[in-house]
Amino acid sequence: MKSYNLTHLKELEAEAIYVIREVASQFENPAILFSGGKDSITVAHLARKAFFPSNVPFPLVHIDTGHNFPETIAFRDKFVSEIGAELIVGSVQESINEGKAVEEKGYNASRNGLQTVTLLDTIEKYKFDACLGGARRDEEKARAKERFFSHRDEFGQWDPKNQRPELWNLFNGKKNFGENFRVFPISNWTEMDVWQYILMEGLELPSLYFAHEREVFEREGTIMAKCDYISQKDSEHTVKKTVRFRTIGDMTCTGAVASNASDLEAIIEEVAASRLTERGTRADDKRSEAAMEDRKKQGYF
């Protein structure tokens, strides 16, 4: 007898596509949060698959800190025009100019936390009732408790202790006026799954993910890219190194790893052998044990 088995990547894909289609059916005005990183590229690709041969019926929303890698922005614009989606940019600089957000001070200053203000403003301005994101449960311990359909109150806040139970494939997107949802179709994927899927599907990625030579310096054990947005201490010497990035965020809080992995196969090998989680290179998570939980409660991604 023939056996009907899906590989785990195909099963994860089927689950994600189902979730994305539920969003299209249950909400009036959804959007995809797009950072230009591998996870949001994967979500956008899954959305293409979900509605094929129609176009993706959601705009891509990018919250731009103004401190992004230029490579990310270039990739974003190319990607958006290729899949024929609308791009909406929420600017952290504008939030600062309008006095809604205040720039952090000190040498570790980052606009990462300020993104929440701009994100919530953008959601309100465009009246998005569901925002699809590429967060995964394996990334961080607060995210391990996250639902596929994550309810946010009218202030955009996450209440981890009062989450709706999520059973079978029955997703409850009911809400009151002013409330909205974050939806995470790749909740059950690991970093390895995402890389394997990118390889399987032949997806294009920003060049930052692959080994390249770059001017960097070391801060508290993390390799940071030299850029205009970070004030280096005198003791932090700039050196040239062959590095790549495991995650892509704001330049001020995304660390690089020394690596020669210049193609997907090499990256997968490196990920398999790695002793650090990918968020181990993120300064934003190291601020406290509950850094992610606190940011999520306020409305972070």
Binding site: N5, L6, T7, H8, L9, E11, L12, M192, Q196, L199, M200, E265, I268, E269, A272, A273
Partner: peptide, 11 residues
Amino acid sequence: TDTKGYLDMEL
């Protein structure tokens, strides 16, 4: 590191 094998895995 055996990337081929990974593509045949079940969940």
